[in-house]
Design a protein around this nucleic acid. Sequence first.
DNA 1: TAGATTGTTAATCGATTAACAATC
DNA 2: TAGATTGTTAATCGATTAACAATC
Lengths: 199, 199
Amino acid sequence: MAIYLRILSGLDLENSRYISSQELGERAGVSPAQVRKDLAMFGQFGKPGVGYHGKTLKAELKRILKADRVIRICIIGIGELGRAITRYNLKRFATEKEYPFKVVALFDSDPAKIGTKIEALEIRPVNELSQTAQACGGVDVAIITVPAEAAQEVLDLVVAAGIKAVLNYAPIKLKVPEHVKLHSADVSLDLHQVAYHLE
Amino acid sequence: MAIYLRILSGLDLENSRYISSQELGERAGVSPAQVRKDLAMFGQFGKPGVGYHGKTLKAELKRILKADRVIRICIIGIGELGRAITRYNLKRFATEKEYPFKVVALFDSDPAKIGTKIEALEIRPVNELSQTAQACGGVDVAIITVPAEAAQEVLDLVVAAGIKAVLNYAPIKLKVPEHVKLHSADVSLDLHQVAYHLE
DNA sequence: TAGATTGTTAATCGATTAACAATC
DNA sequence: TAGATTGTTAATCGATTAACAATC
């Protein structure tokens, strides 16, 4: 679904712009039938014979993806990768009117880092995650960029703080309770994946 | 497959250590049947009644995943993310005896960056990708961490240089010829994905 | 031998695609 | 009206799981 929103965001949507499942599918790299099925899951947004009204569909997708409001994220583990993701998100949020992800808190366990800042955002101690998240007005999504050894422990803190969605970049398989959504991305697993097709 | 190798690497493999599809599946988060099917694709590595010999299976997996030799990677686009991935890989390669991915070249288009170094590795101009890759002894995998606007152009250079495997971190859908393996990872798409499950 | 676990085949499940009546 | 395209149902495809003979 997110890919459709991105495509619509990248398009010049005059008021009269309609887009067919055919065109949307081509741009997204999926079949027209797939597009129609995906969208039909959430309602009847299309008009037979013309397609989907661009502006309307975009608004609907934003609603469905919760991208019609600010989504508050925190980043835990401010090493190279954490720093990169932090800067990337701060910049996009400041620059792009439509980018809904706002970094609201940073955490690390290293006393030397605590108190230092990235842009205007201070790094806080990870063991105070729950209180800090509360104090800064709530966190929707946590991004974990700590070493593999610390990841499960950190994730448990995240769950305890009541955060319901997590993106994990530590190269390890993590356990979460049913009600928490976890997605893991793993650079070295991806590298193996493509390397496997060599020769 | 890569996940099985990681699990075996994390295990203390005495010579008498055998592991069953049951145990391997539990650790990987897949069914025993799935494990057996995956492994059987590449040969008969198991012994009925006992399971898979740890050391042997690990060696086989390394061979299959091409992880029994150094895999040479280059990183194109040395912004925050490129720098983070570079440092991460340089460090792992230097530290972990078994980590097969060696960063051998860095590229950027910014004249201010060209000639500067990360650790001992100099940043080279991206338009000389082909020659530089050749000169430094060949590149197996390219990692693209340039802005979305430049990604397709850079990928075309990568393909022209004869590189057969690419990891893309730019938030855009790229086109490659059939014979090139492309895998894309996308932080903001992942964020939308988990955010979608909020509430 | 009895118990365990493989590799593989058959059965199940889910996801993708094709097709088409409805309709703009 | 004729042409286009939707939403949905039926058909296809592929992937996962169950089951079991073979065998260590």
